[in-house]
């Protein structure tokens, strides 16, 4: 895969790295960021249509894609979708259901993440699920895997085909977006990487045997059944895993940093269709 170094010059415009010096997250608008980001990948992987980026590394690697298509033939996450559907239909002890919180429509993917102006915070679907539970006297679910991932699998499945469109309605929302951008581009850990180190400037290249997937589309396909995990996991579980691989201490799942990161990253996948859950190596 060809390296397109000069494109990094354009990237600096959106880089919020502390090491970039004079550039700040606030220097460019979300619309400008999106254009820079998409153009970067369109140039790097010319001929790959926008929607294909929902498929991660399988958009750019034929051998991997062959494996993947054989696995998606009868995907290992299918029983988990059914488990999730069972959860959706199972009333809480008080008689309410998830449907009571989500307008009886499990296809909620397109509505999250969103800026909650009243609470001045990014709301994500897993957080909304747990708020629904606690409001109805149930214990919250853990955020990385298990029941939460199963319910997300069902809701994402029902949402397949919805297009990503994240609103950034006011100055506070923009601040959260920029905070997420900073999390994305700030270098960290013993390896001094940022998210872009692997998934922008090195995307398509190999780390030992692993080909790095393009960052464009990274928010589309969750939850994911990774062969490496042998189970289903959530986006924030993967965020944490990535930070560990940089030898950095991960932020808390569903904490403010990761929610802001999700807000930024989801915006950067604008106009791509949600297609979760999915199988990955």
């Amino acid at each position: 895969m060809k390296i397109v170094k000069f494109a990094m010059i354009a990237l600096c415009a959106i880089s919020a790295s502390a090491f970039a010096g004079d550039k700040k997250a606030t220097d460019t608008t979300p619309a400008e960021d999106l254009k820079t980001y998409q153009d970067y990948f369109f140039k790097r992987f010319s001929g790959v249509p926008l929607q294909e980026y929902a498929n991660g590394v399988y958009a750019i690697n034929e051998a991997s894609r062959e494996n993947w298509e054989a696995i998606e033939e009868f995907p290992p996450y299918e029983p988990m979708i059914e488990e999730g559907e069972g959860m959706w239909n199972q009333p809480f002890a008080n008689g309410a259901t998830y449907g009571s919180c989500f307008g009886d429509d499990p296809a909620q993917r397109k509505n999250y993440p969103y800026w909650d102006a009243a609470r001045k915070m990014v709301m994500t679907l897993p957080l909304a699920i747990n708020e629904c539970r606690t409001a109805n006297g149930e214990k919250p679910l853990k955020y990385k895997k298990g029941a939460m991932a199963n319910l997300l699998a069902y809701m994402s499945y029902e949402s397949r085909g919805q297009k990503i469109n994240v609103a950034i309605p006011d100055a506070d929302a923009l601040a959260a977006y920029n905070a997420g951008k900073s999390v994305y581009f700030a270098r960290r850990g013993q390896l001094n990487f940022n998210c872009a180190s692997c998934h922008m400037e090195s995307s398509g290249q190999y780390i030992r045997s692993e080909q790095l997937s393009p960052a464009l589309g990274h928010a589309t396909n969750w939850p994911v059944y990774r062969s490496k995990w042998g189970e289903l996991g959530t986006l924030h579980r993967r965020f944490a895993g990535c930070m560990k691989q940089m030898r950095a201490k991960p932020y808390k799942t569903q904490g403010e940093e990761f929610r802001n990161l999700e807000y930024f990253l989801t915006h950067m996948s604008s106009d791509i269709e949600y297609n979760g859950p999915s199988a990955r190596k």
């Binding site: 051998a63 991997s64 062959e66 494996n67 993947w68 054989a70 696995i71 033939e73 290992p76 062969s227 490496k228 042998g230 190596k281």
Partner: peptide
């Protein structure tokens, strides 16, 4: 079977 297995834990074979 794939020429290159993505992950040896799951190699599809027909």
């Amino acid at each position: 079977a794939p020429d290159i297995a993505e992950n040896g834990a799951v190699v599809p074979v027909t």
